[in-house]
């Protein structure tokens, strides 16, 4: 992987003079997760990292940087967000330089921390072969990368970043993974309505209303003017009832129906680990069934809820 990293750095270095900023990843605070890096000068390029710890989808920064010439490093799933942003004209293709990568899965730092039975003080963490080797306060341990991947990696449909201006490294197929964990959506669909309600009541009871899910969502465009904190309209009140928090999640899910690429940032960002992408996945299944459409695959296509067609093949209201 070393040479791929060097190739990436070289590509960034070459493009940087024509760009205002390049967004990549650098080493994070604890060795288990990398952190976004905003490159504005050549010396920053030395800090760039590329390995399975580059979990964050950097596409979410793009709408906020509109008007600037931006370079971005993208995994396969990140590029779907970029495509969706292009489809919705929230970013400009000609202002954007995508450094595309092939990804074999991104790590879930919480999962790793839970698996690493070698103390809380991580002194070093290194990826070698298929393993993450951690040296910590109580010794050393190794975790198989496959076991530490984000849930979304088990459903990967495209590991190569597309669109991209420069592809770094070899193209390849999605990782072949065994033992995909059951999704929350599958579990929920096996439940009765009462059980589902109870499930969400429990989950939302844990929500601390930090709105990291919203802030991390690359497609959440209202951001600073969110209805969750608005008094007019007063759709969500500030009391701590799970109902109010679920109302916000429902609003978020409905606003991203047919737009959400299931990049998983909402769940990854949630500091208390709530399975909030589930609602978006449920809506995406509906969108797939009704419109045979998946978000973020074709920058020329118009998302189905962005248009009105008199006759929809799968919506048969006239036969009711």
């Amino acid at each position: 992987m070393g040479s791929q990293l060097e190739d990436l750095k070289t590509a960034i270095r070459q493009a940087l003079p024509d760009l205002d900023v390049v967004i990549a990843w650098a080493a994070g605070p604890d060795g288990l997760a990398h952190t976004p890096l905003f490159i504005t000068s050549e010396s920053d390029v030395d800090l760039v990292q590329w390995d399975p710890r580059c979990s964050q989808n950097l596409a979410g920064y793009l709408p906020g940087l509109r008007g600037k010439k931006v370079g971005i490093v993208a995994k396969g799933c990140d590029a779907r967000s970029i495509t969706e942003l292009l489809q919705e004209k929230l970013i400009d293709r000609e202002q954007l330089t995508v450094f595309g990568l092939h990804c074999q899965g991104a790590l879930d730092p919480e999962k790793i921390a839970a698996m690493a039975d070698c103390g809380r003080y991580v002194r070093s963490a290194e990826i070698n072969g298929g393993e993450l080797k951690i040296v910590s306060s109580k010794g050393a341990c190794a975790i198989s990368l496959e076991n530490g991947l984000l849930a979304k990696c088990f459903r990967c449909t495209g590991a190569d970043a597309q669109p991209c201006d420069q592809f770094i490294g070899e193209h390849g197929a999605p990782p072949v993974l065994k033992d995909a964990p059951a999704t929350t959506l599958d579990r929920l669909e096996a439940m009765s309505m009462e059980e589902r309600f109870q499930f969400w009541e429990e989950q939302m009871g844990q929500c601390i209303r930090c709105y990291a899910c919203r802030s991390a969502c690359p497609l959440c465009v209202c951001q600073d003017h969110c209805a969750a904190q608005s008094r007019e309209p007063h759709w969500v009140d500030q009391t701590d009832h799970p109902r109010e928090k679920l109302m916000f999640q429902a609003m978020h899910a409905l606003h991203t129906a047919g737009r959400c690429t299931e990049c998983g940032e909402c769940e990854r960002a949630c500091p208390v680990g709530l399975p909030i992408m589930t609602m978006k996945q449920a809506l995406n299944r509906q969108i797939k069934a009704l419109f045979d459409y998946e978000a973020g695959l074709d920058s020329e296509k118009t998302p189905p809820l962005f248009q009105f067609r008199e006759n929809e093949e799968h919506i048969k209201e006239r036969k009711w």
């Binding site: 952190t35 976004p36 890096l37 905003f38 979410g60 920064y61 601390i208 209303r209 930090c210 709105y211 990291a212 919203r214 802030s215 991390a216 951001q223 600073d224 960002a269 500091p271």
Partner: peptide, 16 residues
């Protein structure tokens, strides 16, 4: 501007 560039402006830090 430099230190805040990557911040998402969410409330996770404040609330924890």
């Amino acid at each position: 501007d430099g230190v805040a560039a990557k911040c998402l402006s969410c409330g996770a830090c404040s609330y924890l």
